[in-house]
């Protein structure tokens, strides 16, 4: 029962080979096996969205997947965005609009919003709410996050034009 399994996962462009127990949650794998602790865990039942990552380009709850299921797949986490010295436009916008306070939910918001903005930077108010409805934030009241996403959309659309 529950024998350890070998998996190969590409995370932020780097290939990792690990031996893991099937029940290991993908969130725990990312945080504690790969030491990519920028992905946070807030509820472990798929509601808060703090653990959102990109799985084959789609935003998913990493607490609602087993790490074994990532075998052969591609993952992006917050660490794949900008660096402290060179923030991604979305991160820049979050700083400029004060879209984070404690910062615990922030990686989840970034990874939920990123694919939306990478798809289109022309967002209606409704699109915005939709993109964010799977992420809880207790600090900001969401208003500055909405501002930040609009700001990021501007930055990213002008960035893609140039």
């Amino acid at each position: 029962m529950s024998e350890a399994m070998d998996i190969t996962v590409t995370v932020n462009g780097e290939v990792f080979q690990k031996t893991i127990e099937p029940r290991l949650l993908l969130s725990d794998f990312i945080r504690h096996e790969l030491n990519l602790s920028g992905t946070h865990v807030g509820c472990e039942h798929g509601v808060c969205g703090a653990c959102t990552i990109l799985f084959d380009g789609m935003p998913v709850r990493s607490c609602l997947m087993f790490a074994v299921q990532a075998d052969g797949h591609e993952i992006r986490t917050v660490e794949d965005l900008g660096t402290m010295e060179n923030l991604h436009p979305l991160q820049e916008a979050f700083q400029e609009a004060h879209a984070l306070q404690c910062g615990f939910c922030t990686s989840g918001f970034l990874m939920s919003i990123l694919p939306v903005l990478e798809g289109t930077t022309d967002l209606s108010e409704e699109d915005l709410k939709r993109a964010m409805e799977g992420n809880l934030c207790r600090c900001t009241g969401y208003q500055h996050i909405r501002d930040a996403v609009q700001l990021a959309a501007e930055k990213m659309s002008s960035g893609s034009e140039s």
């Binding site: 798929g46 969205g49 799985f55 935003p59 998913v60 709850r61 609602l64 939709r130 799977g134």
Partner: peptide, 12 residues
């Protein structure tokens, strides 16, 4: 479809 849960849930 958009009324079903949240975007992250619909991804999976």
């Amino acid at each position: 479809m958009p009324k079903i849960a949240t975007p992250q849930i619909r991804s999976r």
